[in-house]
Amino acid sequence: MDDNARSQPQAHAAIVADGLQKSFRSRTGTVDAVRGVDLAVEAGTIFGLLGPNGAGKTTTLRMLTTLLPIDGGRAEVAGVDVARAPREVRRRIGYVGQAGGADLGATGRENLLLQARLHGLAASDIHDRVTELVDLFELAELIDRPARTYSGGQRRRLEIALGLIHRPSVLFLDEPTAGLDPQTRASLWDHVRALRSGGTTIVVVTHYLDEADQLCDTIAIVDRGTVVTEGRPHELKAALARDTVIVQPRLGPEEVAELRDHLARAVPSTTAVVDGDVVRLAVDDGTATLPAVVEFLRREHVPIDGISLAGASLDDVFLAHTGRSLRDPDPTGSARR
């Protein structure tokens, strides 16, 4: 971090992080969960932190939202230094954690009223603001019922309303659509986009590729505690200049792995990975490579259920930068933070 960065605050940056670090001590030693994360989030955009479980996304988010002390580096959120003025940061941000945070025994309205009061909303403003959010998130019919009785999607809407009660300029959402059905997800994304139109900056932590791809304006891909690449999803994919040939053989797991090895030798590919029961070959030019793959499979009499060609996905971007697939089970087995 140099003095230059400090003296020239980026006018449109809602979040700036320089070299954020966090370690946890465990029985087996020290775990460096976040190892120098740099971020710059433009105001009024949806920013995604994408990565596998245990990558350090949530730990980063927890530092930015004042929930965890910062071990190293510094962060500014909504123009305020997080370590120096955590309370000022809390006034300016909304936060919806993985677990959600609704008080399940209380009614939706009681939840909203308490949150409004703790944020110091004027008594005259509280009623209007609650009504406004209840309408916006279509909660009118259930607002006086205990939150315990809500469906997953209803509860998520209440929790986002809780995060927005004080009209924060930055809203943090940690895995906002985990466990929701596709329809509810899509409707939640619409709500998030509407917030962006209203000028709110939204930071979304996700391990869902489609969420990062379709919802976020900019994403940072996080792996093992660092940002491996950052940019607009379509630019990240375009920069790869890469296609994927997906072969679905009718084979057992060991034979699929064997086929992967053979294909990697037979066809000019950047990487070849087994993903469930399919082999994914990352290639520079799919239309040129596909015939060679087909020819190889025919010659070797490999029984196949399907073969297809796909453009680059964010998973390919992740693979290109880390050598692993986001779909792989978490190799370290570390708990989500």
């Binding site: 939202t65 945070g101 110091g120």
Partner: peptide, 13 residues
């Protein structure tokens, strides 16, 4: 577990 305490801790209270 339900995240209530975490939510309250991100308010200026």
């Amino acid at each position: 577990d339900t995240g209530v305490l975490e939510r309250l801790r991100v308010t200026p209270a």
